Amino acid sequence: MGKEYLKGLIEEILYIWAEPIDLEDLSAIIYDFNKKDIQRVLDEMIEERNSRESGLIIRKFDKSYQFTTRECHDRYFEKVIKKSEKKLSTSTLETLSIIAYKQPITRAEIDKIRGVNSQSTIDSLMARGLIKENGRLDKIGKPIIYVTTTDFLKYFNITSLEELPEINLDGDDYED
């Protein structure tokens, strides 16, 4: 079982999985190859598909990988695939931005920044898979800590949080 066999196996898994899958999960599935080899072959596959302008490319979202189509081809699929996904409301985007830039963060911290109760907005973001619970603080009441997900990266078409635009969270940009 050589490199070409491994490439085929990775392609099959990415196709069947359909969602981003991380290297740990790939390694658990492809247990007879080591993680380093899988990573090396994945990087090679990404480069090959990009250089030959393959229709299906492998995108990296943080530490996860997924088969996707090229963005420049989206116009060809617009008539075939109807996007029924509702856009995020202003309050939802505001809450999501706070979580993205301040994570890990609790609901109380979000509420303090926004000045309103954010529970329903957080529930909506959780239902859409854009944020997730990431443990609890070791404080009275054990508040839930929230962070963004791989779906957040996909939604905004970025590979990592480092691609978020820089903002000044201190508020020093405003003059009196």
Rank of each mutant, 00 (worst) to 15 (best):
A28R: 10
E94S: 06
E47M: 06
L161S: 02
D32H: 07
L125F: 11
E163I: 14
P143E: 01
D22E: 07
Q119Y: 02
Y65F: 14
T68S: 05
N34E: 14
K35P: 06
F156N: 11
N168G: 01
R136D: 04
A18L: 02
K86I: 03
D37P: 02
K63G: 07
Q119F: 00
N134P: 14
I98W: 15
K7T: 02
K139Q: 11
L93V: 02
G129W: 08
S120M: 03
L56A: 02
S27I: 00
I58V: 15
K154W: 05
K7H: 09
L42R: 07
E71G: 00
T92A: 10
N117H: 06
E12D: 12
E19H: 14
E109H: 14
M126V: 01
L161V: 15
V147R: 08
S118V: 00
F77G: 10
K7W: 05
F67K: 02
I13W: 12
D37N: 05
P20L: 00
K7G: 08
I110P: 11
D170Y: 03
L88W: 11
S27G: 10
Y65A: 02
S118Y: 08
S27H: 03
S84D: 12
E109L: 12
S54Y: 12
K3V: 10
E163Q: 15
Y101V: 12
E44A: 06
V80E: 12
E85D: 13
Q66V: 12
S118L: 04
K87M: 00
E24Y: 06
L23D: 13
R59L: 03
K154D: 09
E94Q: 09
R75Q: 10
H73W: 04
D25V: 14
D22Y: 02
D123T: 04
I16P: 06
R75E: 12
D151H: 11
V41W: 00
Y31Q: 07
R114E: 14
V147M: 07
K82E: 15
L169R: 15
E19L: 08
P165F: 08
E44M: 03
N168H: 11
I38K: 09
D62S: 13
N117G: 07
T150Y: 07
R136Q: 12
D176T: 08
K63F: 04
E53D: 15
S89M: 00
L6E: 15
V116A: 03
P143F: 06
T148G: 05
G115I: 00
E12Y: 13
T148R: 04
I10C: 10
L26E: 09
R52I: 00
M45I: 01
I105S: 15
K139W: 11
Y15P: 08
T159M: 01
R49L: 13
E19K: 15
N134H: 15
K63C: 04
P20E: 01
E12S: 14
K142E: 08
S118H: 07
L153K: 07
G8T: 10
R114N: 15
H73K: 01
P143S: 03
E163H: 13
E47R: 09
T106W: 15
Y65K: 06
N168D: 15
S91C: 01
G55Q: 03
K102H: 12
G55L: 00
F156R: 04
K87T: 03
N50Q: 05
E4A: 08
S54W: 14
Y101K: 01
Y31V: 00
R70Y: 12
D32Q: 05
